Amino acid sequence: MFQGNQAINMDAKGRMAIPAMHRDALASACGGRIVMTAHTEDRCILIYPEPEWQDILPKIEALPTFNKAALRAQRLLLGYACAMELDSNGRVLVPPTLRNYANLDKKLMLVGMGKKFELWSEESWWASVADLDVDEELPAEMLSLSL
C-alpha cells in the first residue's frame, strides 16, 4: 500500500527517482515494472505497479465507446499508457507526452494513493490541495466514514 507524499526532482533528461521506501515496495510487488498514464480528471500522471494495471485494463477496455465520457477516459488511460521499468538506481524516464500532459518540470510531488501513485508538478499539487471550494457533494461512502 502506497501512502504519503514526497517532493522529488526530475532531471533534465526527464528521469525521476522513486524514493527508497516506495522502491522496495515496488520491487516486491512488480519487480520494478510500472505503467504510467494520464489521470482522467486532473493534470497529473497515474503510476500503477504492472500487476495492478493488468487488473484494471480489461475494465477500461470494456467501457462503452458510444458514451463520450467513457470514450474520453479510454483515450486518456489507454492512449497515454506506457510500460516502464525502474533502472538499477530506482529511476524511471517520464515520457515526454506525459510530461507535457501533466505540465511537469523539475519539481514534482509523488503521492501514494493506496494501490497506485499520482505524480504532480509541485505547483499543481499545492494548488490542488489548497482548492477548498469543492463543487461536488460528498459520496454516501464518505458521509459514513469516521476519521
Rank of each mutant, 00 (worst) to 15 (best):
F2Y: 15
F2H: 09
Q3P: 00
Q3L: 11
N5A: 08
Q6Y: 07
Q6V: 09
Q6K: 15
A7W: 06
I8R: 10
M10K: 10
K13C: 01
K13F: 02
K13Y: 05
G14K: 08
R15D: 03
P19D: 01
A20F: 10
H22D: 05
A25R: 10
A25Q: 14
S28Q: 13
S28M: 11
C30M: 08
G32A: 05
I34W: 11
V35A: 04
V35Y: 05
V35P: 02
V35T: 08
A38F: 05
H39Q: 09
T40Y: 10
D42A: 04
C44K: 10
C44L: 06
C44Q: 07
I45H: 10
I47L: 11
P49S: 05
P51W: 09
E52T: 10
Q54V: 02
Q54P: 00
Q54N: 14
I56G: 02
L57I: 01
L57C: 02
P58D: 04
I60S: 05
A62V: 03
A62R: 11
F66D: 09
N67R: 09
A69K: 13
A69G: 01
R72W: 00
Q74D: 10
L76T: 01
L77R: 09
L77N: 02
L78T: 03
G79Y: 12
C82M: 10
C82E: 14
M84V: 11
E85N: 12
S88H: 03
S88W: 00
N89R: 13
R91G: 02
R91T: 02
V92C: 03
P95D: 05
T97Y: 02
R99F: 13
Y101W: 13
L104D: 06
L104M: 08
D105E: 15
D105V: 06
D105K: 15
D105Y: 09
L108C: 10
L110F: 08
G114W: 09
K115I: 04
K115R: 13
K115G: 04
K116G: 00
F117P: 00
E118L: 06
L119R: 05
L119Y: 10
W120I: 01
W120M: 04
S121Q: 06
S121Y: 06
A127N: 14
S128F: 15
V129E: 10
A130T: 07
D131R: 12
V134A: 14
L138W: 07
A140Q: 13
E141L: 07
E141H: 08
E141M: 08
M142N: 07
